[in-house]
Nucleic acid binder design. Structure first.
Lengths: 203, 203
DNA sequence: ACACCCATTGACCGAATCGGTCAATGGGTG
DNA sequence: CACCCATTGACCGATTCGGTCAATGGGTGT
């Protein structure tokens, strides 16, 4: 495991991204170590040399992802605004920043909810109890919902904004520059803000 | 193959849906006939009795899906309106109707673009040449774009509407009643219409 | 009651692939 | 030159793969 950390950064990211995308697309059981090794451009034996076993690799990826997301959230979420749109733009910026380096990581984390391999049950359930809480519910506390026009259904508007943000990220294969992508998303959010907010809250 | 058509309708749909979801989630190569048989509640030998081989099963599913979609489109798309929102609502109604019976079919059809199994290349490429054309481009001919407010970017608004529709379908596990789902989607579309259209085009 | 039919399936086949191991290799370092 | 250690092709037993087949059993006509 320490041998993996001594790898040059580029090679390390290649291995991580190969593993992320394979596990995310095919799940734990259907992903073979040969698949990951081939996509990463290394030998299968090296994979076992780095991580010991398939299960240990998955566990490492999981911890790595949780830490990376927590770190990105900690340094990306500045002063908590009461404005829905600035807060969701912060969240999308974090997601895009993480995704620009580890393209398959969020899909990997999302896919853990559909994992049914018994060898992972303990680890995943343990993390569900302690860490995750209800992130979505927590995201919306302190938001000033009175900025929305009275005639727009707030719950639907919120769903709309979330689905558009996700739709953009999903559709966008041009993940070259995280800042540029963030800027383009903000254009969509600005359009929605104009459509949903009372005029007194628009610049 | 004729033995499969003589099956009772419920059992037939169970087999089709099992195969759709397995192929859509795991791809052609990673999906085993045992997976499909188990999810369908029949024996693996029966699967081979019906379809002969794994490849023949995939081919049958593909033809079946293309025919089903074409049929649904033919009978679901009434007089072509020049209004963007009524047209997209027609399209979503078709999609939801198909999905209510064959939950995994659209994902199965979408997944064919990422299939790299050499045994399927011929079939998939052949269908790409002849049938598909640019469905999205064709969808938008004759649409009256002047109904949009001058300050809203039309291209972005269109993407927004599409992503919201897809997001709703993806998020909604309550696929019990197709008409109810269609009605809920129309509420979202109505909200967006109010936000994006000039007032003179609102009721 | 019997004979016939055919859908269904558990058991089985050789081949491929699985997770995992190991000895040989080769480039870097003192 | 000797040592070290990352890397890997070849290999292991076990499992799973696509596909086959004979046995079974519930229907149907007579």
């Amino acid at each position: 495991m320490e041998s993996f950390h001594n790898l040059p950064e580029m090679k390390r990211d290649a291995v991580l991204n190969a593993a992320f995308s394979c596990f995310a697309r095919s799940g734990y059981k259907k992903t073979s170590m040969a698949d990951i090794a081939e996509k990463a451009g290394i030998s299968k034996a090296s994979l076992f040399h780095y991580f010991g076993s398939k299960q240990d690799l998955y566990l490492y990826l999981f911890d790595f992802s949780v830490n990376a997301v927590n770190l990105a959230v900690a340094e990306g979420m500045g002063e908590q605004s009461d404005d829905f749109f600035v807060r969701i733009q912060q969240a999308m910026h974090i997601k895009v920043t993480v995704l620009s380096r580890y393209a398959g990581m969020t899909d990997f984390l999302a896919a853990r909810y559909t994992e049914d391999a018994p060898e992972l049950r303990d680890l995943l359930e343990r993390h569900n109890e302690g860490g995750t809480r209800d992130a979505l519910r927590e995201f919306f506390i302190g938001i000033d919902l009175s900025k929305f026009k009275p005639e727009v259904p707030v719950a639907m508007a919120i769903n709309a904004v979330i689905w558009i943000s996700e739709g953009y990220v999903r559709a966008g294969p041009a993940h070259v520059d995280a800042d540029k992508v963030t800027q383009e998303i903000s254009q969509y959010l600005e359009m929605l803000r104009r459509a949903f907010y009372k005029e007194e809250f628009l610049p």
